[in-house]
Every structure is written in C-alpha cells, then in structure tokens.
Simulated scan of single mutants.
Amino acid sequence: MSATPLWRRAVAEGIGTGLLVTVVVGSGIAASKLSPNDVGLQLLENAFATALGLAVLILMIGPVSGAHFNPVVSVVDWWIGRSSGAGLTPRDLGAYIPAQVIGAVLGAVLANLMYDEAAVSWSTTERSAGHLWLGEIVATAGLIVLIFALASSGRAALAPAAVGAYIGSAYWFTSSTSFANPAVTIGRAFSDTFAGIAPGSLPGFVIAQLIGAAVGVGLLRLLYPTAGRAADDVVTPHTKTPANTGAST
C-alpha cells in the first residue's frame, strides 16, 4: 500500500493523464502543420513525441501514483492484486479512474488552446471498423502484459523506456494506431485534429480496450501466474515515501 495520501495520488494521475493527452493531441496538431501533405510523416512525428513524452511522464509522476494514466491498467492492477493484498483497493480505483478521465479531457483542451484552436472541438474522425477494434485489442493486451511482466520480474525500473517504446512502435504495427487507453480515447474526442476520434467511435474503441485488457490478464495468468504480488510496482514502484526529503503528507 502506498504511503502517499489517496487525494495526492489521484491528482497525480489526473495531471499525468492530462499531460499525456496534451502530448498526443499537441504533437498531432504540430505534425499536421509542419507536414501538411505527408500523413506518414505526421504519424511518425506524433508517435515519436508520444513515446518520449510518455516515458518522461512515467519518470515524473510514477513515484507518486505509479503512473497508470490508464483506467484499464488501474482495473487490472486491482483485479490481479486482490488475492495477495497488493495493488489498488476499490477506493483507490474509484479515485483513479475519474481523475484519469477528467485529466484527459482537460489535457485535450490545453493542447487545443496552445495551438489557438477552439477549447473544445468535437472530432469528426470516424474510427469504427472491425479491423481497428482488433488493433485496439492487440495494443491493449500487449501493454498489459508488458507492464505487469516488468513488475513481476523485478524490472519495473525499465517501465518508462519500455512502455514508451511499446506505444511508439504500436502506433505503427496496429491498425488503430494504439490508443490502448479509455481515458486517452475519451480525451481525444474533444479535439477535431490529427489525433482525434469521433464521439460515435468511442464505444467500439473502449469495448475493444476492455476486451484487450481481459486478454492481457489471461496471458499473464499463463506466463506470470504470480504477477499479482507485484501489483504495487505497476507501472513503477510507489509504495514507499522517499527518504530524507523532508516531505510531509
């Protein structure tokens, strides 16, 4: 159990998720302005910025909340940690998920405003097709297995680089460009820009992400049956207050 108060961890999750969406949406807007006639280059610029930004945010926020930034990661952390008394409690989960969603929406608004766009402009980019949903299942399942495999094998310190690299590569090897995150998916609906997703496409993506999380849990049971014991180290260790900092709760 983390020594950090729940309210502080929830705020950290909101800030981290919000800044992640700011990176995704902001770099998408910048890419479309810098490379208006080359969609492939726009995707490369968006993916590169997202991979680096995610790694930095995990390093920055991880010691406070674990840097989940993702409701499916939080749900799986609670689910597989229950039997061993590790990971999030239901009360934690009830604070993390709303904070992540609210943060994601505000992150999109911030990106819009930084580029002199309307604060909220509903995306018109339709992403409703079976092959895209399959891409989201694959992307989310892989993310879950990666994160919990690192924690279970004592390599959680590698999470910032590994998770950033995975998301950056999944932009390219999945048909959906790897949203893999319900909160980020919702946030991206608030920006009618390169990285947006139409509100009508949200249910299919979120359902696919939940299915992907379930697939990821199944793979973890097969490959890392004791992964739940390391749930406190997801995404990064955050169970102890750093020594000699003079910080108070």
Rank of each mutant, 00 (worst) to 15 (best):
T4P: 00
T4N: 10
P5I: 12
W7T: 11
A12E: 12
I15G: 06
G16P: 09
L20Y: 09
A31T: 07
D38L: 00
L43H: 13
A47W: 03
A47D: 02
T50P: 01
T50L: 03
A51S: 08
L52V: 15
L52A: 12
L54A: 01
L54M: 02
V56T: 13
S65D: 07
S65G: 09
H68I: 00
F69K: 03
N70Q: 14
N70R: 15
P71A: 10
V75C: 07
V76N: 14
W79L: 13
W79T: 14
R82V: 12
R82M: 13
S83L: 11
S83A: 15
G87R: 03
L88D: 11
L93R: 10
L93H: 07
I97W: 05
L106N: 02
G107N: 10
V109Q: 05
V109W: 04
E117M: 13
A118W: 15
S121P: 10
W122D: 02
G130Q: 04
L132P: 02
L132N: 01
L132W: 02
L132F: 04
G135N: 02
I137D: 01
V138G: 08
L143Y: 03
I147K: 06
L150N: 04
S153G: 14
G154K: 01
A156H: 01
A157C: 00
A161V: 14
A162H: 01
V163D: 00
G168E: 04
G168F: 05
G168M: 05
Y171W: 09
W172S: 00
F173R: 01
T174M: 02
S178I: 08
S178W: 15
N181I: 10
V184D: 03
G187L: 06
G187Y: 12
R188N: 08
D192L: 05
T193D: 13
I197F: 06
S201T: 05
I207G: 04
I207R: 06
L210V: 15
A213L: 07
G216N: 10
L220K: 12
T226H: 14
T226E: 15
A227W: 08
G228C: 02
D233S: 13
P237S: 03
T239C: 00
T241A: 14
T241C: 12
P242E: 06
A243I: 10
G246Q: 03
